[in-house]
């Protein structure tokens, strides 16, 4: 590994100033569990490392007045996993974050780092997409908000430009009468990368318990984590049945563009999207008391 200059800004302004100055020569380090691996492999070779862990504003993990969850860029996964707020109000996020790495990894890795690393298989992405998360980005001009489904550009790439920093993720409050579930398929039980990841979310109408909103997001089966399109059109206002669950699986499988790699073939991935979609939706139905 080549040497670098190690910088520890104390504010977001200071950080964006550094990033603006050094452009692509600078890399942000939060947990380092992706960055250091990449630096050791030689695929990334920064001359400046910008450690954002000393910026107080990036350590926020709390609810705002609307009940939206704010996860600062420096918040480690184990903090999210241990948080009572997350467990109670965003259980799918608790579930997904507990699957990433090991205890050792979760004590360093950050959720925002997981998002910025933009692996197609990132476990935090499908759940966040389902929950309508927003990326909060800062640069020298100020702050902007980007819907998470527009945040990924390709494998390992986000829409962040040089000089920009993801300062946090905002997750809107989950609707009443809603449930969500994330399942991933791996060869090993833990310490593995998903071959397929499916996150589902359903909320019901107050009165007649039919579908009010449905979101399904997929990981590891397209160049980026994706939301399955046209789900709402197919399901809104309708009761959820075994047939409609099967149909949802078919729609999801039809929407992804999986590749064949070391971990799995494209054909297998497509089949598993159907299976995992069905399982997440079945689990949600059970949670919501729906006989499907």
């Amino acid at each position: 590994m080549k040497s670098f200059e190690y910088l520890t800004p104390r504010s977001i302004e200071e950080a964006t100033g550094i990033l603006n100055k050094y452009g692509n020569e600078a890399k942000i380090i939060a947990g380092g569990t992706d960055l250091i691996v990449q630096m050791k492999a030689g695929s990334v070779c920064p001359s400046y490392i910008v450690d954002i862990k000393y910026i107080d504003a990036l350590n926020r993990l709390d609810l705002d007045e609307n009940g939206s969850l704010h996860i600062g860029a420096a918040v480690i996964l184990s903090r999210i996993v241990d948080s009572e707020i997350v467990k109670n109000k965003f259980p799918m996020l608790h579930q997904a974050c507990s699957l990433i790495g090991s205890d050792q990894i979760r004590n360093r890795a950050t959720l925002c780092g997981n998002i910025c690393n933009a692996a197609p298989s990132a476990d935090s992405a499908p759940p966040l997409l389902c929950l309508g998360a927003r990326a909060l980005v800062a640069d020298q001009k100020g702050m902007l908000t980007i819907a998470l489904e527009k945040f990924f550009r390709g494998p390992g790439h986000t829409v962040l430009k040089p000089g920009q920093i993801l300062v946090g993720i905002e997750v809107p409050k989950m609707a009443d009468r809603s449930s969500s579930h994330y399942i991933r398929l791996t060869t090993r039980e833990e310490m593995d990368i998903a071959m397929v990841g499916v996150a589902s979310f359903i909320s019901l109408t107050t009165r007649d318990k039919v579908c009010n909103d449905i979101k399904i997001a997929l990981g590891a089966v397209s160049p980026t984590p994706i939301l399955v399109s046209q789900m709402e059109a197919a399901f809104k206002g309708k009761p959820i049945t075994i047939e409609s669950i099967e149909h949802a699986g078919e729609m999801a499988a039809g929407c992804c563009i999986p590749i064949s790699d070391m971990r799995a073939s494209a054909e297998y991935r497509r089949e598993m999207v159907k299976v995992l979609t069905r399982r997440t939706l079945t689990s949600i139905c059970a949670d919501l008391g729906i006989q499907s």
Binding site: R188, E189, E190, M191, M262
Partner: peptide
């Protein structure tokens, strides 16, 4: 061990999977 063009592709303890205590 996965070979491509004669070179091992999965030369890490993540991509070469050995069982963990959970398995």
């Amino acid at each position: 061990s996965v070979y491509q063009n004669g070179v091992i592709q999965n030369a890490t303890l993540l991509d070469y999977r050995v069982p963990t205590a959970v398995d």
